[in-house]
Each structure stands twice: as structure tokens, then as C-alpha cells.
Nucleic acid binder design. Structure first.
Lengths: 147, 147
DNA sequence: CGTTACGGTGACGTACGCGTCAAGAAGTCT
DNA sequence: AGACTTCTTGACGCGTACGTCACCGTAACG
């Protein structure tokens, strides 16, 4: 028992004070992912849980990153894309050299995202039209062969 | 030479009258995809080019579908998702049984897309913030170690 | 003390979306 | 009749994003 204050965690998500660390299971439950996924993300340097012995403990930072990762995925970004964006989000004062490059990447991403948003809006209204058309067809069909 | 009116096509994208059929290469050039991609889509029943002997000829319908396919992909939909949506778009009067089910699928998709659009808007502004922050850092850095 | 529960590390498997040969048919040029 | 190009159908390969399985450690329970 190296560190009682950490080891003494029970299994009942007790309010999670902003700075608490989470075990892999708690993390999985909180974000609805599998342990495999979290380990995979760590192996790809998307998450950096600290270690208590062997066990992973996920910090507030990891939670923030995971949230962004999952959102990025819904937008169709690759994990590698996401890693680069996360790096942008968490840059200290170093890496000035890469900074310019990263900004360019982010700007490209921005315009891609804007385009995607516009197209998405269009697609939504088109799909809405199709749905109401289909609903009308369904109505007609019901009317035709009235049971 | 079975059908001269079709066989007599030269290689110079001559205006493409709305109802003209396209060879695989013309199709590829028009949409910037590879032949492999088009054959793959056909194998997955996303496209249905007609055949002149062995060769594929893509119709106006195929062009419309491909446009939607490519858009769907940018939204992160799987080809299977897209196939189902395309089916919705091109339903005649048959398949009344499946119609209701398909409408449900489409509606789920709709709400997914709306959520995605909202999140995307949020992500865009967040990313914009990050970029301007990064640009400020870059400026500071330039100022600090002025060459 | 055994068992149950949770966590860890490989390592292999898998679905998707094509890329990339290989080998042959079919038309076109000279 | 070659040679060339374009097209065809397999079939295998590959990167991504994990799933799954085997096996090991360790801590807690009864």
C-alpha cells in the first residue's frame, strides 16, 4: 500500500472533484469507451495517464483531451490529425519552430471545417426534404391499400 | 462495333450533355477519384453503371449518386450508411415495408447531423481562438529573440 | 489459501476503403 | 500484324482503429 490516499478509492463515482484522477474503468464509464481504446490512445501519444505502479491514472488533462479526441473523431479526423491539433492546444513556450507550421495546419483545418459545416447545413435541409417526401409516400401507400 | 453512337466518343470532355454516359476515366477525371474506387463502389452497390460489352458506362444517376457519396464521406459516414441513404433518395413506390424503417434511420441521421453541425460550429470558434492565441505566441517569440 | 476482480502487456484478428500488381480482352494507331 | 492504350476481373496488401484472446500480476474477500 504505497499511497493510501489514492488506493482508497471505492467504486461509486463520488462526485469527481475537478482534480481527481480516474482509473481506467472510471474513465471508460465516464466516456463510454473500452480500456483497449484508452490504451491505444496512450500508445499513439494522445493521452498521458500517470502511473501508480503499473496502473494508469487519468488526470483532468486526459479527460479534456479525450473529450476533444472523441469530438474530432465525429468530425472524421484521423487520430494523427487530432494529435496534432491537441499539440496545438497544449503548447508551452517551446517549439517556436513548429508553431508556424502547426498554425498553418490548423488554419487549413479551419477552412475545411467551415466548408464541412456549410455542406452539412445544406445536406441537412436536403435530407429533411427527402424525409418529408418519404413520409408522404408512406401516407399515400397507407391510403391506397387501406387495411 | 455494336453501337456507333456510343462508341464514337473522343477524349475531350465535349460539354457533357446532361444525359450523356461517361466512361470510367471520364468519370474519374470529373470527380477526382480512381477507377478502383468506382469499381469498389459498384461492388458495394453504391453505383450501377450500365455495360457496353464489358465496359462500364456511368449515367447521370451515377453522377448524382457519386456526388452524394463523396459528400457523405466528408461527413464521416461509412459507405454502408451512405448506401442506405441513397436508397432512401431513390425509392419508387415499392418497398413500402422498408420505407418506415428507412425513415427512422434517416431521422436518426438527421439528428446526428444536427448535433454534428452544432458541435462543429463550437469547435470552429474554439479552434479560431486557439489559432489567434498561437499567433500571439509566435509574435511574442519573434519579439523576444529578435534576429 | 483459493477465487474473484481489476489491471497490465503482447500479439493476432478484423472491418473498412481503397492501392497495387497480374493477366487477359478489346479497340486504336501505324 | 505488332504495339499501345484502356478497360476488365481477381487477388493480395495496407493503414486505421480498435476487438479479442492468452497469460501474468496483485489486491481484496471469505
Amino acid at each position: 500500500m504505497i499511497c493510501p490516499c489514492i488506493t482508497l478509492r471505492k467504486h461509486g463515482a463520488e462526485s469527481m472533484t475537478e482534480d481527481e484522477v480516474l482509473t481506467i474503468r472510471e474513465m471508460c464509464d465516464a466516456f463510454n469507451v473500452t480500456p483497449r481504446t484508452l490504451r491505444f490512445y496512450e500508445s499513439k501519444e494522445l493521452l498521458f495517464p500517470i502511473r501508480e505502479g503499473q496502473k494508469r491514472l487519468f488526470t483532468r488533462r486526459d479527460r479534456a483531451r479525450l473529450k476533444l479526441i472523441l469530438r474530432g473523431k465525429r468530425f472524421g479526423f484521423s487520430l494523427e490529425d487530432i494529435r496534432q491539433l491537441l499539440d496545438l492546444y497544449e503548447m508551452g513556450d517551446q517549439q517556436k519552430t513548429q508553431l508556424h507550421e502547426t498554425i498553418k495546419v490548423a488554419q487549413q483545418r479551419m477552412s475545411e471545417m467551415s466548408r464541412q459545416r456549410d455542406e452539412l447545413g445544406q445536406a441537412i435541409s436536403e435530407l429533411a426534404e427527402q424525409i418529408s417526401w418519404a413520409e408522404k409516400q408512406l401516407d399515400k401507400a397507407r391510403h391506397t391499400d387501406a387495411a
